[in-house]
Design a protein around this nucleic acid. Sequence first.
DNA 1: CCAGAACTCTGTACAACGTACGAGGAAATG
DNA 2: CATTTCCTCGTACGTTGTACAGAGTTCTGG
Lengths: 256, 256
Amino acid sequence: MTRMSTEYTGGGDPRRTIELLWGVPGPPRRGPKPKLTVADVVATATRLADADGLEAVTMRRVADELGVAPMSLYTYVPGHAELIDLMLDHAHGELTAELPTTGWRDALTAVAEDLWRLYHRHPWLLQITTGRPPLGPNTFAKYERELSALDGVDLDELELDAVVSLVIGLVQGTARGSIDAVRLARRSGLTDAEWWERSAPVLAEIPAADAANFPRASRVGTAAGQAHDAASNPEHHFRFGLARILDGVTLLVERR
Amino acid sequence: MTRMSTEYTGGGDPRRTIELLWGVPGPPRRGPKPKLTVADVVATATRLADADGLEAVTMRRVADELGVAPMSLYTYVPGHAELIDLMLDHAHGELTAELPTTGWRDALTAVAEDLWRLYHRHPWLLQITTGRPPLGPNTFAKYERELSALDGVDLDELELDAVVSLVIGLVQGTARGSIDAVRLARRSGLTDAEWWERSAPVLAEIPAADAANFPRASRVGTAAGQAHDAASNPEHHFRFGLARILDGVTLLVERR
DNA sequence: CCAGAACTCTGTACAACGTACGAGGAAATG
DNA sequence: CATTTCCTCGTACGTTGTACAGAGTTCTGG
């Protein structure tokens, strides 16, 4: 019942997937005219995922939404995994805002904040395990844009890659927390605060869970819980983490 | 077919889950003697997950392994989601090594490395979305241990929480990459390098994917690809990221 | 000592899922 | 116009978690 799914990318035949991602035209068509396009399928799937999460993107539901039988989708897309690939690359296409030219700190901050917002607009993006990123145009452009934030910074290629990866990892981790809280609240009908209010008294009945056994955890935990209104505050963690990372990178650059 | 699943924690009734986590004895039993214990179920499920991933932890397979009918498991565990909670807390119990006393940098490094190793020992841990962490003894102890690494550091409670969270997030993100590479290699029969060798020629046929369109990405991408033997090197990203984060935190502390 | 309550165990069943397979029909080519 | 090529779809299989009801076992109250 309580099951959500994470689709793995890079499942199927690389050739076909890449061709789909880049929209290669293919040989002249002979049979009946297609009712749909790949873009239709991707758009509908994305709409479903935005509204009801990635688990709503089933072949049956997408087909229903398009007024078509489930098996018809396989004309446009090799399978479910490839559909997810296409959705991912498509969403990356939204990252087009120009970066500030007031220095790499501002630019990298903009990269992080744009991504933070993208993940909140399309929370299902973080349910995808991008072990092997889809080699699509928008994903390439995303990486290019991220690297351009560090134009002129005196770091070698490996360091540039590592810095970008570090910032992206921070956004993904903290955004995941932020989004999961919303998702769980909707799914269980309990906000974080309500859930804690319900859990705390149960914990209080358990002798071993006494604050004396976990002095630091209970001190820091209650302080954090009071400061924010939840068990943790992902947005605060995001801002704090970004500041530390940028400071750390600054130190690395200045050491040159 | 190509489907892996991520279980969500905190799904069911908090009371029952917490009682299971802490092993409260319960009222005197009247019926026939149970064949199993909750610990048996958790141990078997963990063994399956270690061997074949979280998707192998189905009620049917766990029951099979225990020589019992699937529905019998529901005597011990309210459902699949709660079983995952129990597995998670149980695995956290492995984090008991003493931390170095040579300063908070060493201690925090040890925390990160211990976690890195735990995730590689139990890769399925990263398939679990810990939106609401299981309130079990080992998860509490884990947090307490992590905070203890910062004993004596002049930071307030919110900062302590944020620092710990930042380091853990780094480990999770990079370990996820490291583990997904292994998982995908096993599942698809292709290593990262082989997969790239197969994808590159396809990409080369696509005009729009020319290096001229993505100058930074292709320069950094090929440099990184040559330096490590794969598209990305999670362990390098882990070490690099940890160094930057520790530097950033040092700066924050010294600014006091 | 024994009736009944309480508990464990299990077989069957249902609604999902992705998708393999093959049939039927539409469009373009020779 | 015959043939090839492609789109569309109905059916079917093997998965999953688990609701439900029945059968059997053990302890308790009288």
